[in-house]
Amino acid sequence: MSACVIGHITVKDAEKWAQYRAQVPATLAPWGAELLFRGQLADILDGRHAHTDTVVIRFPDRAAVDGWHGSAAYQALIPLRQQAADLDLLTFSDQ
């Protein structure tokens, strides 16, 4: 069963965000992850949404998500990410 990580993002520092984004793909590769979508909010059709950007990354399974997120490579990027953006990071898996 595949799993997806969805990030809802509000960029605070564009330069630091670009640095973070440039380093993330190398942390994903060992876990078989694929970037499916990265984009900016076009419209809110219903309800509320606090963030301006979204990213969707597909992993082979939930274990790969947990391995990636807990990896030393990704953990090393979290301080930069926190300086660069406010982020809600969610995991969803097939049922």
Results as ranks from 00 to 15, higher is better:
His51Asp: 01
Arg62Gly: 09
Leu35Asp: 09
Asp94Cys: 11
Ala18Asn: 15
Val65Met: 11
His49Asn: 02
Ala33Pro: 04
Lys12His: 10
Ala85His: 03
Leu36Ile: 04
Ile78Arg: 05
Arg48Lys: 14
Pro30Gly: 04
Arg81Glu: 06
Leu28His: 06
Arg21Ser: 10
Trp31Tyr: 14
Val65Thr: 08
Asp43Lys: 03
Glu15Val: 15
Asp88Leu: 12
Tyr74Ala: 13
Leu90Met: 15
Leu90Val: 10
Gly70Met: 12
His49Gly: 01
Ala64Ser: 15
Gln95Asn: 14
Gln40Leu: 02
Phe59Leu: 12
Val5Leu: 09
Ala73Gly: 06
Cys4Gln: 13
Ala29Asn: 08
Arg58Ile: 05
Thr52Cys: 01
Gly47Lys: 09
Leu87Thr: 15
Asp88His: 08
Gly67Ile: 03
Thr10Gln: 12
Ala29Met: 12
His8Thr: 06
Asp43Glu: 08
Arg58Pro: 01
Arg81Leu: 04
His51Pro: 02
Ser93Pro: 00
Ile9Ser: 03
Ile78Phe: 01
Ala26Thr: 07
Arg81Val: 07
Trp68Asp: 08
Thr27Asp: 04
Val5Ala: 07
Leu36Tyr: 03
Val11Ala: 00
Gln19Asn: 15
Arg21Trp: 06
Thr91Trp: 01
Asp13Gln: 12
Leu89Tyr: 05
Pro25Lys: 05
Tyr74Thr: 14
Val5Pro: 02
Tyr20Arg: 13
Glu15Arg: 13
Lys16Cys: 02
Pro79His: 10
Val11Trp: 00
Tyr20Phe: 13
Leu35Ile: 11
Val24Leu: 09
Trp31Gly: 00
